[in-house]
Design a protein around this nucleic acid. Structure first.
Lengths: 188, 188
DNA sequence: ATTGCCTATGCAACTTGTTGCATAGCAGGA
DNA sequence: TCCTGCTATGCAACAAGTTGCATAGGCAAT
């Protein structure tokens, strides 16, 4: 139910078309809220019908027209109301944790390459975060409210990736230890 | 698509009825894979039709009969195949991060109580993890394969909660700073 | 010339996940 | 006695998210 709100935030930060929003969701916002272009188009039409966003047709030179959306006052009000609502307890889906526990009933060594792939992608993401930080926040002493809030979210992303990398190293060490030692499945 | 696999892992660790599975998902497994009883019942019926699990009707004294499920060989094989499949890149939905960025267009101070509530629930979860660790893994030097893997997942949960608590303190400090200083919305 | 990729939007069909309700007997407290 | 709550399973309707495909022009490389 929060895709609407993520879209509103993105449009408040910068108006754009559905297509542009989809690309933003692949980049910055998508780090903490994913969505496909299909979802975005569908939700945008509903939000336009509800008056949360306003659309403007923009003709372009060598490419298709686009509809540029921007947040309207009722949308802004809905966002403010949502901010004040309580939690909704974050449903977690951590596939790798399931796989690790599943490895007890198969060969733990079979997971090593998978965990290494995860490790690499988290390391790459951390690097991108750190580069993005240097690019977007060169002077940490001179940030306005919006940048302060963007930066504290980014810090969360950075710390999450650091923690994850350390944990994945721990997982790898554990898997290697189990692969070297008893080769049994531990069961059956 | 991984609920089947989470259920298989849980049934391999311990056979049980749909109801019992739902309760386990509310406790241990649910920390990294949530599911309602509706989902579990539906998926269990499909898995039984596919031969992934075997069901046995068990009459009980003072309460309704139950169907106790256990993992069957085809299910175990499907789990092993899934273990060897590549990633599926973890769709993230971090509502609080969206709210924090949204606060730039409203009053950052309005978020403080919400963040404090999150902080409390993460602190409570960390405490439960640590108690569970002492209860289930009293002797870390004498763990079998299954326990080693369960413990490394638990360590991940513990580190995640510690990291999250530190970040939420950072968020709170930032929100307080913004609330004390410029009271503007930073925009409009 | 053809192939493939990018912008830009959308339909249709499908799978997942959620919410509300129903049944049904038993246990414990007000 | 009535009400609440627990075990145990399930239907029905809905909301959210995914996948495959279609259109349609332009650009760049082969």
């Amino acid at each position: 139910m929060a895709l609407e709100h993520a879209i509103l935030v993105s449009l408040l930060e910068q108006p754009g078309s559905g297509y542009e929003l989809a690309r933003r969701f692949d980049r910055s916002i998508g780090r903490f809220w994913t969505a496909t272009h299909q979802q975005i188009y569908r939700v945008l039409r509903r939000m336009e019908a509800d008056g949360w966003v306003a659309a403007e047709e923009v003709a372009q030179d060598g490419r298709p027209d686009k509809k540029v959306y921007s947040a309207a006052d009722p949308g802004r009000a809905a966002l403010a109301a949502w901010l004040r609502e309580p939690v909704e307890p974050e449903t977690v889906r951590h596939e790798l944790a399931v796989k690790i526990r599943a490895a007890a009933f198969d060969d733990p060594a079979a997971l090593i390459s998978e965990v290494e792939r995860h490790r690499e992608s988290h390391a790459a993401l951390l690097t991108r975060y750190l580069h993005g930080e240097q690019r977007d926040f060169p002077d940490l002493a001179a940030l306005d409210t919006r940048q302060e809030l963007q930066h504290v979210v980014l810090r969360g992303g950075i710390e999450f990736e650091r923690m994850t990398l350390a944990w994945l190293d721990d997982v790898l060490a554990t898997l290697h230890r189990l692969a070297d030692g008893g080769r049994g499945t531990g069961n059956r």
